[in-house]
Design a protein around this nucleic acid. Sequence first.
DNA 1: GGTTTTGCAATGCGATCGCATTGGAAAGGA
DNA 2: TCCTTTCCAATGCGATCGCATTGCAAAACC
Lengths: 199, 199
Amino acid sequence: MPKVVDHDERRRVIAEAVYVVIEQRGMEQVSLRDVAKEASVSMGAVQHYFRTKDEMLLFALSHMRERVLTRLTTHLSRLKNPTRRQYIREVARVMLPTDAQARQEAIVNIAFVSRSLAEDPLQVLLREGYQRLIDSSDTVLREARDAGEISRELDVKKEGDALFFLVQGLIGPTLIGALSIRRAMAIIDHQLDRLFATS
Amino acid sequence: MPKVVDHDERRRVIAEAVYVVIEQRGMEQVSLRDVAKEASVSMGAVQHYFRTKDEMLLFALSHMRERVLTRLTTHLSRLKNPTRRQYIREVARVMLPTDAQARQEAIVNIAFVSRSLAEDPLQVLLREGYQRLIDSSDTVLREARDAGEISRELDVKKEGDALFFLVQGLIGPTLIGALSIRRAMAIIDHQLDRLFATS
DNA sequence: GGTTTTGCAATGCGATCGCATTGGAAAGGA
DNA sequence: TCCTTTCCAATGCGATCGCATTGCAAAACC
């Protein structure tokens, strides 16, 4: 057996280069050559790890999911004894482009959503991802209700969905610059005020 | 003076061809040749009306705004003596991909949002568009409150924003197939129930 | 009816694309 | 040590890209 290399690690490095190219020049400028250059490897190397460009992008999308999840858990673990409301707020905040990394992830995600509308394999992956997020968003709210922090009169399913899609809808306008992070968070906090009202 | 042609009309025809190509094959597949073919004109004609590809896409985006606005007013004018709530509901419904045309517009819009993140002129146009929409969304809610249909205790500014961004957030997942139109409308109706509560 | 100006069609060009092919360096296993 | 397998660098190829150039038909104006 020859040279031993961590296959997945190499693929991840290339995927990260894909993100940089998408962020800096957009999805339509993603070429094998530019990705290779950004990853500081040869074009042959990229071809060695991905049979086609589409396969590379598919992996890049699935790796992005893991990356977002990792960042999310990191941020959440920094909270000391958070209330359920603080927890939910932090999840929402982490989804918004609050720092360079979150911004890159948001840009890449939108690029993939757009591309997926013309390419099916990507769409399947994204759809599953969304459904999982919607589910966990409902779960958190239900836990909060069971813990008595949210009124039993609220429809936690519909409110959880509304909160999740609200955050989703804030991302694009924030990236474009039509909305500041501050205002976006104020809108979220306003909804949290309502959900967690102690009246 | 030679042959007289409605300049803007020609440009709109080409822009419509751009939408079709984006919808069917995605933004990264938009080429001058394919757009010309879709518009049933020669490539020379496209070049005659747009100096560059970027200029063509910029016009396509601005024409898309007019097209959406036209469709919106058409749908609204079909309502017979609508209540304010029905009016708002219809606006939200028209923004979602409920039919073929709305779906095409949503797809094209996402494609432009994504592309605009790497190209500034598009971003400026989109930002202005969003801000106008946010403003009018606030205005409608304020009118409803002044008419006594919405409780004076509500923060119409924040609620108007939340409603608008909620609708925005529903579009992507609906396109991807992670959410049905029915469920999307149910989420909106649930929020409208709350806003227009007569308690 | 000649002149001029516009509306396009056609073609060419250099750059870039994804992908295939080839060759060889490096690293275990026999 | 030799051999095999993997890793990857380099190059080539046909297709396609945006854009420039050229040429000409058609239509107002004199």
